[in-house]
Amino acid sequence: MLTDLSLTWLLVAFTVAGSIVVVASIRATALADIIADRTAVGEALVGGVLLGGATSLSGVVVSVTVAAQGDASFAFSNAVGGIAAQTLFLAIADTLHKRANLEHAAAEPANLFQCVMLLILLSLPVAAMAGPDVAYFGIHPVSVALFIAYAAGVRLAASVREEPMWEPVETGDTRTDDPGDAEDAHKSARGLVVVFVALAGAMALCGWVIGQTGQEFVTRFGLASSLVGSLVTAVVTSLPELVTTLVAVRRGALQLAVGGIIGGNTFDTLFLVFSDVAYRDGSLYHAVGMADLYWLATGLLMTAVLMAGLILRQREGPGRIGIESVLMMGIYGTAVAVEVVGA
């Protein structure tokens, strides 16, 4: 359907879909914060699972649709490129939180655990790519392992939040998870959840439009799939994470902001699972190129630096932000330069 559109209307469709995703994500962030208070689940866990998963739906639709159409590189780079971009958004948010380094203020065991889980999940595709090219019913065994690891990790993250075995040292700049008004906490969250699901559905639909227009850019202009996937569709479908992070920081929900990014990234690893299922020409991991692997390594490196920052908890570093934010900006900028020059 979109193949018949002129370039102008194709750009309009791409822009409108991206805008709807951003607007829906703003509302979803506010609802997630209230849902966290009313259900007593906690900002870090709601941000990591509910908000992170909802704002990632547009991205997963992009990866699955292009994988089903046989473009493995596009599907893979959209997933891992989005993880790198979303981690960068925490560094951007750090520049806006003037009181102290964001990673210092948002100390939370559940966020640290999710960082560890993300590193494990990102390591599994590396093992698949380096291992034998096998697929059963068109699915690589690592995809199954990745899905199981994600499900187990989410459950363990909940237990870390409920019964932490350690707690961060509180300082004057530490922002704890404040449940808000005690009277409001007893109100039902059912209606809010319904609205939240509707917003997630809208973002998923827009993800399909973004994926189809992205493939048209590849076809019409002869662009590399890894370039469009990692720097165009990945960034656009990741904009909800940028918006939700900035909105959460402005609302003072710092743990929600950090948890939303890390949780969104862990959910984004499932893009590879769903894409491997949708890709019918064998193992997805053995159909991608070195540029895609480079973005995967970038996501791993940025996550490791972020986790180090969460442990270090530097109050203030270069440019009044944490040293980890400076490093993450540098790593991402290098990856963009490598992708553009290589293309």
Rank of each mutant, 00 (worst) to 15 (best):
G319I: 04
E108D: 08
D178K: 02
A185V: 12
A93C: 01
L301Y: 07
G289L: 12
T95P: 08
L31N: 08
T176H: 14
S63A: 13
Q212C: 13
T174W: 06
Y332E: 11
M117P: 06
L254D: 05
V142M: 12
R38H: 09
R250Y: 08
L146D: 09
D173V: 00
S275P: 11
V235D: 05
G264V: 05
L31P: 08
T245C: 10
G153R: 02
S58R: 06
L192H: 04
I20M: 02
E162T: 15
A67T: 06
I34V: 15
Y279P: 09
D37Y: 04
S19Y: 07
D37E: 14
R280D: 09
E170Y: 13
V16Q: 01
G82V: 00
V197E: 02
A151L: 14
S58D: 11
Q215H: 12
E103T: 15
A32E: 08
D178P: 11
I210T: 12
N111C: 09
G289D: 15
T8N: 08
H186Y: 10
L242F: 07
H104V: 11
D173R: 00
P168E: 05
G264D: 03
G299A: 07
L199H: 03
A198C: 12
I311A: 14
F74H: 09
L199P: 10
L88R: 03
S6Y: 06
V22R: 00
N111L: 07
Y332Q: 11
L192I: 00
T303R: 11
A105G: 01
V49Y: 13
G319Q: 03
V273D: 02
G70F: 06
K98G: 10
L57Q: 02
G138F: 09
D292A: 11
A308N: 07
L102D: 00
S56W: 00
F137R: 05
G53W: 02
V41G: 00
P164Y: 04
F76M: 05
S225G: 08
F196T: 02
Y332H: 13
R315T: 12
I323V: 15
A304E: 10
F113Y: 13
Y279I: 01
V134Q: 05
G48C: 13
G229C: 04
T55N: 06
T269K: 07
T174I: 07
F196D: 11
L310N: 13
G211P: 04
G207D: 02
I210Q: 05
V194L: 07
A72L: 05
Q114Y: 07
E316I: 11
V193W: 07
A337F: 15
I321R: 08
D33A: 11
Q255V: 03
L270D: 03
F196N: 01
T171W: 02
A32Q: 03
S283E: 12
A93H: 01
D281K: 15
Q114I: 12
V236Q: 04
V340D: 00
D177W: 01
F217A: 10
A30I: 13
S226F: 14
F271Y: 15
